[in-house]
Amino acid sequence: MKKLLMACAAIAGLFPLLAQASCESVKTDISHKIIANGVAESDFSLDILPNDQASSTGGQVVGHCENDSQKIVYTRSAESASATDDAPAP
């Protein structure tokens, strides 16, 4: 019985590490999709933030992880955003 309790405790201790890995995998998947849509990797950043901080960054929430306790926020770099703003309208 003690061995079973110890095994359960060890597995429960690994859950935070597995949850962080899943956030990183979601962030990587989103990054690949953005790059596939023609945005250069240097023109944006993705940040994993707690829910309460996600709305104050000024970026756009593009995903979530860890049972919706973390948000993945997309922010366009200043150089690429200003270049897009200066482009003439078709």
Rank of each mutant, 00 (worst) to 15 (best):
residue 78 A to L: 07
residue 85 D to E: 14
residue 55 S to E: 10
residue 65 C to W: 11
residue 53 Q to E: 14
residue 47 D to I: 02
residue 82 S to K: 15
residue 59 G to F: 07
residue 14 L to T: 10
residue 83 A to H: 11
residue 45 S to Q: 12
residue 49 L to Q: 09
residue 40 A to L: 08
residue 68 D to L: 12
residue 9 A to W: 12
residue 12 A to D: 03
residue 14 L to Y: 01
residue 84 T to L: 13
residue 84 T to I: 10
residue 77 S to P: 01
residue 32 H to G: 09
residue 52 D to P: 04
residue 14 L to A: 15
residue 66 E to H: 07
residue 74 Y to A: 00
residue 72 I to M: 06
residue 17 L to E: 00
residue 78 A to P: 02
residue 21 A to H: 07
residue 55 S to R: 10
residue 44 F to R: 07
residue 5 L to M: 13
residue 87 A to K: 15
residue 86 D to L: 14
residue 81 A to E: 15
residue 35 I to G: 02
residue 60 Q to C: 02
residue 48 I to Y: 00
residue 29 D to S: 14
residue 29 D to Q: 13
residue 58 G to H: 09
residue 35 I to E: 08
residue 72 I to Q: 04
residue 72 I to G: 04
residue 4 L to Q: 10
residue 25 S to V: 10
residue 58 G to C: 06
residue 47 D to P: 00
residue 59 G to H: 05
residue 63 G to I: 04
residue 83 A to W: 03
residue 81 A to W: 05
residue 60 Q to F: 07
residue 49 L to Y: 04
residue 7 A to W: 05
residue 69 S to N: 08
residue 31 S to H: 05
residue 1 M to E: 09
residue 26 V to W: 00
residue 31 S to N: 05
residue 62 V to T: 01
residue 18 L to Y: 05
residue 88 P to T: 04
residue 18 L to V: 13
residue 61 V to M: 06
residue 72 I to T: 00
residue 55 S to A: 12
residue 77 S to F: 02
residue 47 D to E: 15
residue 26 V to I: 15
residue 82 S to P: 00
residue 50 P to E: 12
residue 78 A to N: 03
residue 83 A to Y: 06
residue 83 A to R: 14
residue 88 P to S: 11
residue 69 S to W: 05
residue 90 P to H: 09
